[in-house]
Design a protein around this nucleic acid. Structure first.
Lengths: 233, 233
DNA sequence: CGGGCTTTTGAGTTAAATCAACAGCAGTGG
DNA sequence: CCACTGCTGTTGATTTAACTCAAAAGCCCG
């Protein structure tokens, strides 16, 4: 099996400031894999055998309730770690990782975590910072859900997606992976119907432009205003 | 100044499995402090000069929105770490820590974190596990807010409080610190009116018993049923 | 070109918020 | 000791944001 090239991960957040030798050592424990769009990298509650780095693609992290409702916890972009249950002492994955597009990932066996963390403190530190940021961000979503109404929450979600995955086009900032009304509903705790109505209204006002599984933000500033002001004009 | 006795922290989660000498070294960097009920240990967005362990009391972690709404992120019980912004590389506190009752805390200067974490890996590990658990739990709250209705969310919140802070009394399980309808509303993203109506209804059914700032769960099982079944009987 | 998704839009319903008023208890100070 | 004041909680009436129900239209792929 050909060994992985260190340029794959050099300069990525978690491996920033590692020497070339260190990068090789880290990669020696990893295997790479491709996953097709709509396949899952791991499933909620499954044994956490590995942790992952997304090299290319976009991953949707989803939790399912006993009643069958799905909630999207977050989207993972390239260069980000995911499935890092091991780092926090869990033995199962807390959510399912679905590929929103075809994905390429690196995977390390869970057993390698302690060793890598000990040998490369900057890697461990970066991982914990990631977890901390996600805690922060999740906390913010609780606050949002508790205090903002649906229109504001959807506006915030779209803005967040654009910030994370926005691609400049002649028309505006386009979210660079396929995303449905249903997906946005699952991110914001509402229904696809409500999301559809909101996006239609915003499209009439020239704030966004949307097609099947595609959203382009034309006027981010006005979307921000909507996300802040309770009851918009 | 009298030095702190190691029995204060021996056996507490974060310091479990440290030797007596190690405990003394950890304590050498700490100071202890008391805070009166309704005072704050630290404020949201303030410089994170210290991290804390709650020795005795109960602390409410609160975030305030730009619009002035408050949301209770969690309650901290004795033996738990809090204000551990440093561990995740933050320089400010993400929320305010209010004392629900008179509290006694240990405080370490933020600068001590890296050193303590390096010297006592089990302490670092326990801290990260705490953060991981809180991420998990916060994630669950997002799911709840997105999928359950108010009655179920309030039932879940009360059950969580009872599990965390329940004291057995002849009548049932009493939450061992003062908690208002408003507090529960801020935990569940609803209004004190709705909470009041729910508790009154449950009291009529003999599921809970409540007085001013006091809630006793008489029939936890039926409360669990309410928390699970959409639309209750 | 047919069948299955995704999206849109309308109509009706409802859970929970808001608006409003009052009741009860607890601590304060005369 | 009692009256006053301020919080905390209760309860009713009304409103409304968003969900549910329903149907149809558009698009994509096999």
């Amino acid at each position: 099996m050909a060994s992985l090239d260190r340029s794959l991960i050099a300069g990525l957040g978690p491996f920033d400031s590692l020497t070339p030798e260190a990068l090789d050592q880290v990669l020696a424990r990893a295997r790479s894999a491709r996953y097709a769009k709509d396949s899952s990298v791991f499933e909620e509650n499954a044994e956490a055998h590995s942790f992952f780095l997304l090299l290319d693609g976009r991953i949707r992290v989803v939790r399912t309730t006993p009643h069958g409702d799905q909630v999207i916890a977050r989207y993972i972009g390239d260069g980000e770690l995911f499935g890092i249950a091991a780092a926090i002492g869990r033995t199962t994955y807390p959510a399912t990782a679905m590929c929103a597009v075809d994905c390429v990932v690196l995977a390390w066996p869970t057993e390698a975590w302690a060793d890598l963390a000990a040998r490369f403190p900057s890697f461990a530190g970066s991982t914990f910072r990631t977890i901390g940021n996600r805690l922060q961000e999740t906390q913010s979503r609780v606050v949002e859900m508790a205090t903002e109404q649906v229109g504001q929450r959807v506006a915030l979600a779209v803005l967040r997606l654009v910030r994370q995955a926005g691609r400049k086009t002649p028309e505006g900032l386009e979210i660079d992976f396929p995303i449905s009304r249903q997906d946005i509903a699952e991110m914001t705790g509402t229904t696809l119907h409500t999301v559809s109505r909101l996006l239609s209204a915003w499209e009439d006002e020239g704030i966004v432009k949307s097609a099947r599984q595609k959203i382009t933000v034309i006027d981010p500033h006005r979307l921000m205003v909507i996300s802040e002001h309770r009851a918009g004009a």
